[in-house]
């Protein structure tokens, strides 16, 4: 699903936000991307939905070479990816419902189906009663949950989440994590950037660790030893 070979991203000439990253994530995997602030997590995710182009190296996502992808294909790539942005990125002048169904209305999904889907996903994130609210009327945590709802509503092939629990208390964080697990169980590949080690313990999975732009660790959970 995701393949990077020697990917480097420098926003400015001298300093590389990511250097020489090679990794591969299979379809259906659930992976954490961790590392301290400034390590390059957000940059890596942005490369994966072609918001940024690598300075060097190659990136493949969902069978597409993102270095070569023509501009007109980018929207189609992004519709296969659910993205939870660190800063939410909600349309402020549109309701929660309009925000999470934005893409569907263009794809000819019936209003009825849009409503059903929206209601279902909003229930999961505990915001069914805020369906017709506008983002600025919501708290940070609520906006984050709307962003999550938008990312998962179409059961994307790939889910990219950047600090998706950064504004949530731990009980809610675990619920969101369970939501991601459910989605993952239905076939979506999941990549979550987080520096919250609690999460990694709550749902142990493969962990990629970045440190100052370098991939320093790629660890899969060891199976629990059998208790006798």
């Amino acid at each position: 699903m995701i393949q990077l070979t020697h990917a480097t991203k420098a926003y400015r000439h001298d300093v590389a936000a990511l250097s020489d990253i090679s990794l591969s994530i299979e379809k259906g995997e659930f992976v954490y991307l961790t590392g301290s602030s400034g390590a390059g997590k957000t940059t890596l995710l942005r490369l994966l939905f072609r918001d940024q182009v690598p300075t060097e190296g190659q990136i493949w996502v969902d069978g597409q070479n993102l270095v070569r992808i023509p501009a007109w294909r980018i929207p189609f790539l992004r519709r296969r990816i659910g993205i939870v942005f660190q800063d939410f990125r909600l349309l402020e002048r549109r309701t929660v419902f309009e925000n999470i169904t934005f893409v569907q209305r263009f794809l000819g999904t019936s209003i009825r189906e849009q409503k059903e889907k929206a209601l279902r996903v909003l229930k999961t994130v505990g915001l069914a009663h805020k369906m017709h609210a506008f983002p600025p009327e919501l708290s940070g945590g609520e906006q984050q949950r709307v962003a999550i709802a938008r990312a998962v509503i179409n059961e994307p092939a790939l889910l990219l989440a950047d600090e998706p629990t950064g504004n949530l208390d731990s009980a809610l964080s675990y619920e969101i994590l369970d939501l991601f697990r459910d989605i993952n169980n239905r076939g979506t590949t999941v990549l979550i950037a987080t520096h919250d080690t609690d999460l990694l313990e709550h749902l142990p999975r493969r962990v990629l660790t970045l440190e100052r732009g370098r991939l320093v660790d790629d660890r899969r959970p060891t199976p629990l030893p059998l208790m006798l």
């Binding site: 929207p75 990816i81 402020e92 002048r93």
Partner: peptide
């Protein structure tokens, strides 16, 4: 800002 968000979630140029 609004336009950028639309692009990020997969809106085509025509939309």
């Amino acid at each position: 800002d609004e336009i950028e968000i639309m692009q990020l979630v997969g809106a085509t140029a025509t939309w």
